[in-house]
């Protein structure tokens, strides 16, 4: 059946099966920036924002997100117009293989919107659902901390 989705602020009409997960629907329709590390809700690689909340897209049916605002990592910034978080992730070495990065960036984005001045502990807790096997998290936490600092110093919008 055909369903209308709001993905990265654009309305997309997509053909879906009623039992399809949001992850599969997104990936099958070219939103391959949403990654699949486990399909079991345990790695956070598939995180998207649904109405500004982080959700493991492998764990929800696409149908349930139909009337809501979905955002992938490209929805917050692109290669030619990156979000500050993305810039700092890249310059801090918070991305090695980058497979966790889309989910990681979105978890960090959502944290900074709610809590512009998180402690290291709060950052770690907010990223607790995102596995990364490459970095050991040290530079990821550092990137989030630095982004928060720059945003606060320069009063940059968190959008």
């Amino acid at each position: 059946m055909k369903i209308k989705f709001n993905i990265n602020s654009k309305i997309e009409e997509l053909e879906i099966r009623p039992d399809a997960t949001l992850l599969n629907v997104l990936r099958d329709n070219g939103f391959t920036e949403v990654k699949c590390g486990c399909s079991e809700g345990e790695c956070g690689a598939c995180i998207v924002l649904i109405d500004d909340k982080t959700v493991n897209s492998c764990q929800v049916l696409a149908m349930s997100a139909a009337s809501k605002k979905i955002k992938t990592v490209k929805g917050i910034g692109t290669l030619h117009n990156p979000h500050l978080l993305q810039k700092i992730f890249a310059s801090t070495g918070a991305d090695q293989c980058g497979f966790c990065s889309p989910g990681m960036v979105l978890s960090a984005y959502s944290l900074l919107k709610e809590n512009p001045n998180p402690t290291e502990k709060e950052i770690a807790e907010a990223l607790d659902g995102n596995l990364c096997r490459c970095t050991g998290y040290v530079k990821i936490i550092e990137a989030v901390r630095r982004t928060a600092q720059i945003m606060n110093e320069n009063l940059i919008s968190r959008e």
Binding site: Q86, C97, V105
Partner: peptide, 21 residues
């Protein structure tokens, strides 16, 4: 020098392609 990875921004914006993509 701490040069930024040449694929860094493409990775964190979800632009790079992996096998399953």
């Amino acid at each position: 020098k701490a040069v930024e990875k040449i694929d860094g921004l493409a990775l964190v914006t979800g632009n790079e392609k992996y096998t399953d993509d």
